[in-house]
């Protein structure tokens, strides 16, 4: 029985964090082969979350600044920045960027949450016009985001 409990705990740890977020209007959950948190619209605006190590350990402001400097250096053009607090009290910052992709200009958005040893990234991207059409809905949904355990 102990072994069974241990196996269950080990299996759960391997699952990684359980992200939660209210479904943004117009998005559907896309799970196949994308872990547990990926969303897409019918016309291809996509959202996905992942964790990285908070290493070196730093606060949200540090990583927001570092992300901004890095993406600017890589030639992305900043569209906007918005910091907010989720319903559950987590602090997050969304940085939106523009970059050419093929014949189109795309928006690439990165939302950061820092929780202890982890930095949770919620990335979103889509062709400019299509992204702009859903960005308010996405921003509203992000306020319900829970980085999980």
């Amino acid at each position: 029985m102990r072994w069974l409990l241990f196996a269950a705990v080990a299996l759960c740890a391997a699952c990684g964090p359980t992200y939660r977020m209210d479904a943004p209007d117009g998005f559907v959950k896309y799970t196949k082969g994308h872990g547990q948190f990926a969303w897409t619209t019918a016309d291809g605006v996509r959202v996905k979350a992942r964790d990285v190590k908070n290493e070196p350990k730093a606060e949200l402001a540090f990583w927001t600044d570092a992300t901004q400097r890095h993406l600017t250096a890589r030639g992305y053009t900043k569209k906007s920045e918005r910091c907010f607090t989720t319903r559950a009290g987590a602090k997050g910052c969304t940085l939106e960027w523009l970059a050419p992709r093929g014949n189109e200009d795309w928006v690439f958005a990165v939302t950061l949450f820092v929780t202890g040893e982890r930095v949770t990234l919620v990335e979103a991207a889509g062709p400019f016009a299509r992204y702009v059409a859903v960005e308010a809905k996405l921003a509203k949904a992000l306020e319900t985001f829970d980085p999980g355990l």
Binding site: R46, K48, V52, K53, P56, A66, T67, H70, L71, R74, Y76, W97, A99, R101, W106, F108, V110, V119, L121, E123, A125
Partner: peptide
């Protein structure tokens, strides 16, 4: 910062 190098539009898409 290693993870910042994984932030990329092409890689994401």
């Amino acid at each position: 910062f290693a993870w910042l190098n994984t932030l990329d539009l092409e890689q994401f898409v």
